[in-house]
Simulated scan of single mutants.
Amino acid sequence: MNESDVQTIEVALGARRYPVWIGRGLLGDSARWRARLRGRHALVVSNTTVAPLYLERIAQGLDGLHWSSFLLDDGEAHKTFGNVGRALEALATSGATRDACVIALGGGVVGDLAGFAAACWMRGIDFIQMPTTLLAMVDSSVGGKTGVNLPAGKNLVGAFHQPRAVVADIDTLATLPDREYRAGLAEVVKGAAIGDATFFAWLEANTDALVRRHTTTLVEAIARKVRYKAGVVARDETEQGERALLNLGHTFGHALETAGNYTALLHGEAVAIGMLLAARLSERLGMSEAPDTARLQQLLDRLGLPVARPAGMAPEQLLALMRLDKKNTAGTLRLILWRGIGKAQIVTGVEETAVLETLAEATSVNAASGRATAS
């Protein structure tokens, strides 16, 4: 592994620091990541799709340690308390002590659940994120948010628990289905839409290269998004203020995911629709201008992402789910909106009438393409 080919971004949280490594061949570079393990025990949490592809590579790096694996079925629907309990039982069976490490090998579901299990075992042990999806590389693997879903809503239970390291091996993206890859691009766009108009313009200029998965362009996009998020997390680790801005589109998006029973939409697809709904609501409230909304919709569309509420999800149902969002305060909606590209803002006391009107705008799913389209 040529060190010059690896981008290293440090997440600094006071005296606590950890690296995010981005490059090729990193899963097999055990000399790099094994040094982050402090004890003799390790549990690799993965899923039935990823493990056959990459678990053996990790196993080679764990030679000589007491390690085992715990596999989930693939999909958001499996990010449950029941599976956290099974992961904890796997730690117990292995005899894991307080210096054990959980390794999350997979996408955001695996990372969130594995990190939560690590936060719970003996009140907190180490874990390492090894994201294998673009969405996890640019978002969920960085910042220490862990948790599980409930039938009532997404990520309603969890803990802040920072990893020891993040190992983002972009070779894993070669096996990522096109739909999953495009869903990850939504989180890249989100970072630019929140706080970096220059990055947004760069994405507009490099859309074709990103869709083709051009290596240099892809590494640059991942690194820029991770640097931005690392800075926000360093200033507001537990989301008391600025970090909430990273949830642009998420209140809408989580409601969409829940309404679809975590199977109708991928997380990134829901975020894409949610961002556009947030932009339209901002415009409705007089906070932003139509040209910015149009630029966002055009970029999302060029990246192959859905841009409208799927048919069958009623505005009233979505609003009821939005009322359960963690960001709400004192029984009122607290949303992340914007004043144009790169200027996100926390807005409290949002009128539900305006939200309903935004949700009710004519939208449908194009049955021929399976993509959501706006009227």
Rank of each mutant, 00 (worst) to 15 (best):
M1T: 15
T8I: 15
I9Q: 09
L13E: 04
G14N: 13
A15H: 14
A15P: 01
R17V: 07
R24H: 13
G28M: 10
R32T: 14
A35P: 02
A35V: 10
R36S: 14
R38T: 14
R38Y: 00
A42W: 10
S46H: 03
N47T: 12
N47P: 06
A51K: 03
P52K: 06
P52H: 07
Y54M: 08
I58H: 12
G61I: 13
G64V: 13
S69W: 03
L72I: 08
D74L: 04
G75P: 02
A77G: 00
A77S: 06
F81Y: 09
R86E: 11
R86W: 00
L88G: 01
E89D: 15
L91M: 15
A92R: 11
A92L: 06
S94F: 00
R98I: 06
C101T: 13
A104R: 02
A104M: 02
L105C: 05
L105H: 07
G107V: 09
V109L: 05
A114K: 09
G115Q: 09
F116E: 00
W121D: 01
R123W: 06
R123M: 13
G124W: 07
G124P: 14
I125K: 03
D126A: 15
I128S: 07
I128V: 15
M130C: 05
M137Y: 02
M137V: 03
V138K: 08
V138H: 12
D139H: 09
K145W: 02
G147N: 05
N149H: 15
L156C: 06
Q162Y: 10
P163A: 00
D169I: 07
D171A: 09
L173Q: 09
L173G: 11
L176P: 10
L185G: 03
A186V: 12
V189G: 04
K190L: 05
A193W: 15
A193F: 15
G195N: 08
L203D: 09
E204C: 04
T216M: 02
T217R: 00
L218M: 15
L218G: 07
V219E: 10
E220D: 12
R224N: 12
Y228R: 08
K229V: 12
R235G: 07
D236I: 02
E237Q: 14
E239K: 05
E239A: 11
Q240C: 11
R243Y: 06
G249C: 10
H254V: 10
A255I: 05
A255V: 13
L256A: 14
A259G: 15
Y262I: 07
A264R: 15
L265T: 05
H267N: 07
A279Y: 03
R280F: 03
L281F: 09
L281Y: 01
E283I: 00
R284W: 01
L285Y: 06
L285H: 03
L285F: 06
L285D: 04
E289R: 04
A290W: 00
D292N: 11
T293V: 15
R295V: 14
L296T: 01
L299Q: 13
L305M: 11
P306I: 12
A308S: 15
R309I: 06
A311M: 01
A311H: 14
M313E: 13
L318Y: 10
L319V: 05
R323V: 08
R323G: 07
D325I: 02
N328Y: 06
I336W: 08
V350C: 04
T353D: 14
L356R: 13
L359K: 11
L359H: 13
S369Q: 07
A372Y: 01
T373Y: 02
T373W: 06
